[in-house]
Design a protein around this nucleic acid. Sequence first.
DNA 1: TAGATTGTTAATCGATTAACAATC
DNA 2: TAGATTGTTAATCGATTAACAATC
Lengths: 208, 208
Amino acid sequence: MTEKISQAVIRRLPKYYKYIIEQEKKGVDKISSSQMSRDMGLNASQIRRDFNYFGGFGQQGYGYSVQKLKSEISKILGLNRTYNVIVIGAGKIGQALIGYENFLNEGFSVVGVFDNSSKVVGNVIEGKKVLAMEEIGKFLKNNTVDIGIICTPKDYAQQTADYLVSHGIKGIWNYAPVDVSVRKGVCVENIHLSESLHVLSYQMSLEE
Amino acid sequence: MTEKISQAVIRRLPKYYKYIIEQEKKGVDKISSSQMSRDMGLNASQIRRDFNYFGGFGQQGYGYSVQKLKSEISKILGLNRTYNVIVIGAGKIGQALIGYENFLNEGFSVVGVFDNSSKVVGNVIEGKKVLAMEEIGKFLKNNTVDIGIICTPKDYAQQTADYLVSHGIKGIWNYAPVDVSVRKGVCVENIHLSESLHVLSYQMSLEE
DNA sequence: TAGATTGTTAATCGATTAACAATC
DNA sequence: TAGATTGTTAATCGATTAACAATC
């Protein structure tokens, strides 16, 4: 599998995964690319080609086993393990993410919550006690943490990322409205909620 | 301007907008595509071509006026007006969005908040009183509302969208973890936070 | 076997980029 | 004017899709 897999393909994988989970819940145990095509609004060739970048896990004349698809895509996405996660910044967005049950379902476990404000430190959110920022270093020494979710104000985002990375964190999920950059070998996803709001207003302005 | 503008171009516009706002804040009043290219990590030709889909607003030999770029892109994105917004579902995510100051900056005004739970109805969140779900109909009759932000549990998302659309709402920003569909003429942006988390775990699994 | 559907190649389509003429 | 930088075309690159052979 030396072939380079494009970002476009990768961004479709979570959609396939979600769809497969739904099918599984419905009790479906076999699915064809043409059925997926109709349900998901993607081209059937594209679906088959996407799967085949990873080796192809269908059966000619039959289709795809939902079980097999689920386990293969889940493996590709790295969802066949658990991730320990900390949340930095227990403001509104931080709190929302701590409680986002969907993450917990899927192997992401919030093991620590940190905040700067003495108003928040000590509070319990979704069963997690908020610790003071100064304790992060110690916490990271004593616990294995895979991912840091940055929910700080934007002026603290980069320094928070730097700090986490220097303490061995390998993944950053950043909700501060500014891109953070990290060294090679560390992964980051920058979330900009306003971008999609602007796309929405763009589209609305076309309708008039 | 009959030429079709691709989704790829449109998704870059908010990034340009954000960048321009930053430059303006720094007091920069002129910018070249090559400088933007370096700062944003995009190809300079692409930047110029993107702007030229909308008519081109630079000056040869000089570059782009930050003021002009800002006002043009803002106009294209439909940000030269105010949007009245309601939030349906005052759970954690709903609350986070109500308080997301960045929206308010940019002409999005939360005029109503609704929830089903009697535990929440009557509470005041960020200065907004939470109303009961039953009041939406009346509210929409008496107020102009442009956008509905859906923060309900996923099983209520589609019916909420249908209801809002039937009462004249033209834009839906959906945070429930399920795609909602709407009739032609109505705009929707479905947000799936977990997708980017899965892309993150995918990337992390490549690093091992 | 006949029918169905994948896997995979080749063709098409669309997006990105290089190049340079236009022009401030 | 000389220098700089846009606007725009043409070339390149990459992603999507059609088509069909492979095969269950």
